[in-house]
């Protein structure tokens, strides 16, 4: 039956071609997924590096703020030269804040008198204060920051804890 054999051979070849095609399609899909994952991982890695760098600059900004917080009450008593230095440092701090803002980093506002949220505030100090409910923020110790709308550092706060 030569005709049958011929038909079988053709069917076999068609099946072979189909199998190859399917293998190629699957390989393309696999490669595509691989590239997508690679891209996502690289983006995440870059984002993490940027965040780390920004957090370092935020720490410098924290230190400026700590110093100013201590100087502010006594600055009026200082001589004009010291006042000028402090003013210069204040300008440098403002430059740093501006640079951070330009990079998409802005302070997250903490309202004293509001309740501390575990998702926004890290309570590092507590105080017993009558007339205030527990968990009320009485002081912002370190500012929290947002990077492109997302929280990259929580604010360190002092909150009420009445024993």
């Amino acid at each position: 039956m030569p005709k049958d054999n011929d038909a079988n051979t053709k069917e076999f070849m068609a099946q072979e071609i189909w199998n190859e095609f399917i293998t190629d399609v699957l390989e393309i899909i696999r490669k595509k997924r691989e590239l997508e994952q690679e891209k996502a991982e690289k983006e995440l890695e870059t984002e993490n590096k940027i965040k780390k760098l920004l957090l370092r600059f935020i720490e410098v900004s924290d230190s400026f703020e700590n110093v100013f917080k201590n100087i502010d009450p006594v600055i009026g008593e200082a001589d004009s030269r010291t006042q000028s230095w402090v003013s210069n440092f204040s300008t440098i701090y403002n430059m740093l804040q501006r640079a951070l803002k330009e990079c998409g980093v802005v302070p997250a506002e903490t309202l004293t008198g509001s309740k501390a949220s575990p998702y926004w505030h890290n309570v590092i100090e507590t105080v017993s204060q009558s007339g205030f409910e527990d968990e009320t923020i009485v002081e912002e110790i370190k500012k929290g920051y947002l990077f492109e709308g997302k929280l990259i550092r929580m604010a360190d706060v002092k909150a009420v804890r009445n024993l």
Binding site: N48, A116, P118, V123, E125, T126, M154, R161
Partner: peptide, 28 residues
């Protein structure tokens, strides 16, 4: 966005907190 999660559990407004949020309330 942390690669390690603190194995800490806390409570906040009848909700259970795990990881950094729980750690944030440790002193409270």
């Amino acid at each position: 966005a942390e690669q390690m999660t603190r194995s800490i559990v806390g409570i906040y407004k009848n909700d259970y907190l795990v990881g950094t949020p729980a750690l944030n309330r440790w002193s409270l």
